[in-house]
Design a binder for these strands. Structure first.
Lengths: 117, 117
DNA sequence: GTAACCAGGTACTTCAACGTAACTGGAATC
DNA sequence: GATTCCAGTTACGTTGAAGTACCTGGTTAC
């Protein structure tokens, strides 16, 4: 239904902002094959710090992209997995990721040309 | 070609960062139907300031996504248009945009639930 | 008992992105 | 000759996201 992304009041702008956040794309991709524990995520997504990962996870949980599941075991275990909504995001994000991977060389060349020229 | 997006050194991270920049998506979408002049862009993309738009355009030009064309007329005219590379980006970005537009309600509901609960 | 693991939390700092406001300089228009 | 349009530029201030470093409290393994 007609959202106008160019309008300042358009709610899809908020959504695009969340998607554009530095680490959201990585979390979604990292959870592609199933739920993971916090430390597994830190290990898999190189360069992310615990603090930032926590913030990203909380934000994504708030948006219903992610489910945080505590298991009542001893010792307790916490797992993060994609919801149906989060999983549906995989499709467009995969397209972006593939575009990035295939066009990296062209962009790097363009940057070099811009530096020299 | 094996890029590992999860690796810190992966160049596609840089690319994803540029794509994730607040206004890149809007510029690409705004130029979908052909080249536009600077002021036309400012008018079309609501909320963007001249300064930020200039920065965004320069960065995109450096990456080869955009071509800046000066016409040797009186008075001179400047137009910005997508390159082939920039146009190829339209496809994955359209997918993201459509996802955002269709799932905005779900996300807003999830946020409300998170606020109350 | 002590060392490491898990799942974070806190406090502080930094930095780039973003925004505001005002200005420029040439050309055309009234 | 005053104003407006175009295509920005410059200086400055703000903000929010990200990073650094260290702490915590329970649990299990050595």
């Amino acid at each position: 239904m007609g959202y106008d992304v160019m309008s300042v009041t358009c709610p899809s702008r908020v959504v695009l902002h969340r998607i554009g956040a530095r680490w959201t794309v990585f979390v979604v991709n990292a959870l592609e094959d199933g739920p993971l524990r916090f430390t597994a995520l830190v290990a898999k997504i190189q360069g992310v710090t615990p603090k930032v990962l926590t913030e990203t996870l909380r934000a994504m949980e708030e948006d219903g992209l992610l489910a945080r599941v505590e298991y009542a075991e001893q010792p307790p275990r916490v797992e993060y997995g994609l919801t149906d909504l989060g999983r549906s995001l995989l499709i467009p994000l995969r397209a972006v990721r593939e575009w990035a991977e295939t066009h990296v060389p062209e962009i790097l060349e363009a940057r070099e040309r811009a530096q020299k020229g």
